[in-house]
Design a protein around this nucleic acid. Structure first.
Lengths: 231, 231
DNA sequence: CTATATATGTCGAGG
DNA sequence: CCTCGACGTATATAG
């Protein structure tokens, strides 16, 4: 990992073309040849970058570039797509290199996959007498998160989100429409389950006869832990 | 902008909870208090981060933490959501600070706008005898990318995407529904045009009687200076 | 490898 | 402020 603070301008050509005017920025050069160009604001997204696999070549500036103050040129070329990033460096204020080694990586909890597992294991949260048919029930337009049966044996399609927004209701609506054309499944009702459901999504769901359900992650995980400890 | 190379472990609690085991990483501290934690690989996305608005507080470690080698603790708290990122620092190998100033920002040239221009100019790609009515035909729920007429003089609404996914079909469906209620326009048929159309989107479009059309960007552009823009 | 859904998505436009 | 759509989306996972 090499960290350079430099006055530079940048040009990118690939899926789009883009240009960064002359300013002072941080250039982060990773071991794999990739390059990130950060300013002192914005969020985690760099102003510009090149993803691996790619190679960096350092070049001498042409005379006309040297005349306007360019001291070196970094040309980063993507190995597969021929995307190219060219950094024209005017002045380097700081240049540090350090060996980091392999990173053990991030451990996550509470993403949608985990919610789906938990709800499948605690299908009774949908209601008394509900049973799990299967997770990831496949249809022609995509997988339904959970297919269950209610206390009367009727099909119930469950769409799970971390945050329930209108998109998710639309998605479930499409599934229901399709599944209700299948005489083996129909009638199919819908449940929209999420840790948090936006008011508009709740309204839309109810308007379409879809039940909404708030999932309490901590509670569900707690129950699961207790189950685990019983064994 | 402060750049720190340090051995650290990290914990995040917010929309999800996550943990980074002890390793050497780069900590990028921006002027607005935001923090990025980068390893020497991956793409431009940090391993972990806190977006602005947020504040950084440096704390002394508790005794039990100090005993295992923690020298300082950085606690970054989001100003609105109460998301929290805690960095436990064991050793600092490098620590640099530099004033960058405001960045003038990125200048972009996108692809989708160009696709729309090109298709309007080459409207015959839609079929024999088609004529352009106008680009950005305005409806109550938004602009239709292109309105054309087919060889019989009937209205055709075209939705253009770089990548055709289900969302785009939904969008076009809404336009068609609305436009077909207008006796001056009806009957209106739809064409979903994109550089690439996902199978699910194609299925849904056909199910709704919408024609799909693959656009060859390079061909439409005439395979001119694709990479010649840099210099 | 392709295809698909998720994401602490981020980001910008527009009501 | 919120919603919606685009993104050089990236990323993991299933087929």
């Amino acid at each position: 990992m090499r960290l350079v603070v430099a006055k530079c301008s940048v040009d990118y050509a690939g899926r789009l073309s883009a240009h960064l005017p002359l300013a002072t920025r941080v250039l982060m050069l990773k071991q794999d040849g990739s390059l990130l160009i950060h300013s002192d604001g914005g969020s985690y997204k760099p102003l510009n970058w090149m993803s691996p696999p790619c190679t960096l070549a350092t070049e001498e500036p042409e005379k006309d570039q040297a005349d306007v103050g360019v001291t070196e040129i970094w040309r980063v070329t993507h190995a597969k797509t021929a995307d190219m990033l060219v950094v024209s460096i005017y002045e380097i204020y700081n240049d540090v290199e350090h060996e980091l080694g392999e990173d053990p990586g991030l451990i996550k909890n509470g993403v949608e996959a985990e919610l789906q597992e938990l709800l499948a294991a605690q299908i009774e949260l949908l209601g008394e007498g509900y049973t799990l048919v299967r997770r990831e029930y496949f249809t022609a337009i995509g997988p339904v998160d959970i297919l269950a049966r209610d206390e009367n044996g009727n099909s119930v399609a469950v769409e799970i989100k971390r945050r329930g927004e209108i998109d998710g209701v639309e998605q479930l609506t499409r599934y229901l429409e399709l599944m209700n054309r299948d005489p083996h499944l129909a009638p199919v009702t819908g449940v929209f389950a999420a840790q948090e459901i936006k008011p508009q999504a709740k309204t839309l769901a109810e308007d379409r006869g879809i039940r909404t359900l708030i999932l309490d992650y901590d509670e569900m995980r707690g129950i699961e832990d207790k189950h685990g400890r019983l064994f």
